[in-house]
Amino acid sequence: MRTITYRDALREAIAEEMRRNDRVYIMGEDIAGYGGTYAVTKGLFEEFGEKRVKDTPLAEEIIIGTAIGSAIGGLRPIAELMTMNFSLLASDLIINSAAKFRYMFGGQPSIPMVIRMPGGGGAQRGAQHSQMLESMFAHIPGLKLVMPATPYDAKGMLKSAIRDEDPILFVEHELLYSVKGEVPDEGEEYTVPLNRGIVRREGKDVTLVTFSRMMHICLQAAEELAKEGIEAEVIDLRSIRPIDLDLVLESLRKTNRVVVAEEGWKYYGTGQGIAALIYEHGFDWLDAPIGHVTGKDVPMPYSKSLEQLALPARNDVIAAVKAIVPQPAGAR
């Protein structure tokens, strides 16, 4: 397998699906000739033209409204929002229209729509442009929300999302776009399901449940922990909604200890939701309280040094694990 970036993997998924189905089109701000703020759509305008690669005015609500309306009409829109922060502007149409039409109106119309957007911090974008807001949307019945962490998943899940009949929020991360990983050769068809997590690293002592960029930090933490004799299993959820709870519980039955690690905030968020599900369905298997690693409970600082302090890091994961895992025999 070759190695490509997350960004290129996304672009390949879009291009392959647009070649495969002429009902698929993409729109957003600066995505056509400019190629996208994060260069994900570079070259698509040249191949598919302005009809299928549409630059839009700067108005998130109607970008999503247009996606919904054209989906009602039988198209399969991909809407790119420059960042997840701007999804707030479109949240009424996402939550009150896209998520509900199938249910409210007897299964007709369905809204086969993908909203692509990067969330998260670490690139010094300031408090209003660095947020992880997935839990707001993952809360809503009728929406699916995925957060792939690797180029392989980015491509395979985006292809699945474009083919899906329901509205899907596809949350990327600015600091993942240049991450490289193995992806099958172009033209070698594969997809990744939208409802399955994956074990990234096997271990017997503790389960790290994580997703998106935080998954890479957890893997690094697991390597460090291994040096001290603690074997952490790392589960990359990939899909936040629906969540692959069975995979988490299966791991719990082996390790009896869980740390949930996420970049977002602690209160009322994704991690607490996961922890509550584990307590509800796996309490008897737990030998320790669930650990929870999150970003600091503050708006994202702008200063580089403060931002790094606010983001959860490898050492936070290691500390959370050590707080609930007995020190291995022979360790100091």
């Binding site: 089109y25 109607i62 409204g65 247009t66 919904i68 309306g69 009424d92 009150n96």
Partner: peptide, 25 residues
């Protein structure tokens, strides 16, 4: 004939999106 929309005004974006799709075709 699309469904009755209760939230004020949200059918307007839907209609414009649908019309953009008509132009697409």
């Amino acid at each position: 004939f699309a469904p009755f929309i209760i939230p004020v005004g949200t059918q307007v974006p839907h209609a414009v999106g649908f019309a953009v799709g008509c132009k697409f075709d």
